[in-house]
């Protein structure tokens, strides 16, 4: 039996969607815990991608093994970003708007620095997984997927599961959930806000780093990638709900499938419409919120 294009698009969409999940989770964690929208998140992810790339280029390190370097490095960068961009304005009025401006300024700086350091060239860590197809046979036809997407989806699933368990069973994770429900009450109960915020930012960085490793294996990446992923993550978060873990998973997979379906339907001349799925997702989610009268 031949390929079923619908199934191919569906499976491919779920594969890409799993990447969106792990990427958007990092952003949504910060929104949940400290009401900070981190515009530099896409560039944190790219930092992970470039680190993976250069570890491979210089030392021939397997991209999956480079996770061992990328995760602690991105944790440190995340904590650093907290002390640069959030800590100084923690007590300001309009905290959310102020951090938005600061992280957007950070995005501009990082984008320019990345382009100057590493140019606009498209890079990728070539792996044997990339060229290995995996074929699923179903009664409705076959679906095909690159092995690397399967590995990426596995990584994403593992990261999401670990985060869920972390939030549920560790003291720090429970403190994060407490802070996202009611910050004042959490502080009154003795949760050290600054340390908690710094750790959240670090974990957000780790999630970005994992997404970055997957990106380095799956795609040709270049500095502007960080920005387009940012918009996709907004789409995921707007659909899934602010600060919601399950919502992010559902939103990410939905966006991935929506994009690949758009690309399949408008094949060829309208190929650029696929990027629009994220924008439409944001605006539809927004319009639904407006109709329901929810302001957050």
């Amino acid at each position: 039996m031949g390929f079923n294009p619908f199934l191919v698009a569906l499976i491919g969409g779920l594969g890409v969607g799993s990447l969106y999940v792990v990427f958007a989770l990092g952003m949504n964690l910060l929104i949940g815990v400290m009401r900070v929208i981190n515009f530099t998140h896409g560039y944190l992810m790219l930092l992970g991608s470039y680190l993976t790339y250069f570890l491979w280029e210089w030392y021939g390190l397997n991209p999956l093994l480079s996770l061992l370097v990328v995760m602690p490095a991105l944790f440190a960068v995340g904590v650093l970003f907290h002390f640069i961009m959030v800590q100084p304005v923690l007590k300001r009025p309009y905290f959310e708007d102020t951090t938005l401006l600061l992280t957007f300024a950070g995005l501009l700086i990082l984008d320019n620095v990345f382009v100057k350091l590493w140019t606009d060239n498209q890079r990728q860590v070539p792996t044997t997984y990339f060229n290995t197809p995996v074929i699923f046979s179903t009664p409705w036809g076959d679906a095909v997927l690159s092995q690397v997407v399967l590995i990426g989806a596995g990584l994403a699933a593992a990261a999401t599961l670990t985060l869920g368990l972390f939030l549920r069973y560790t003291w720090t994770g429970r403190a994060m959930r407490a802070a996202s429900q009611d910050l004042l009450a959490a502080r009154l109960l003795g949760i050290p806000a600054t340390r908690l915020y710094a750790i959240s930012f670090g974990i957000s960085g780790v999630l970005a780093g994992i997404a970055g490793v997957v990106v380095a294996m799956e795609f040709l990446f270049y500095p502007e990638f960080g920005f387009s992923y940012l918009l996709k993550a907004f789409g995921v978060i707007m659909m899934g709900g602010l600060g919601s873990l399950v919502g992010t998973i559902a939103g990410g997979l939905t966006l991935g499938v929506a994009e690949s379906m758009t690309a399949w339907v408008y094949n060829g001349a309208y190929g650029t419409w696929a990027n629009g799925a994220a924008y439409v997702a944001i605006l539809v989610a927004l319009a639904v919120r407006a109709l329901l009268g929810k302001s957050r």
Binding site: I37, Y94, E96, D97, L100, L231, F234, G235, M238, L242, Y270, T272, W273, N275, G276, A278, Y279, V280, I282, L283, L286, A287, R289, A290, G293, K294, S295, R296
Partner: peptide
């Protein structure tokens, strides 16, 4: 009007997406 349901940063994201969508429409 549509964006007024959202506050602060979420409005910012919505306007960013709206502008990006408009650009895509003009392109196509």
């Amino acid at each position: 009007y549509v964006g007024s349901a959202l506050r602060g940063p979420y409005f910012a994201i919505a306007t960013l997406a709206a502008a990006a969508l408009i650009q895509l429409v003009v392109l196509n």
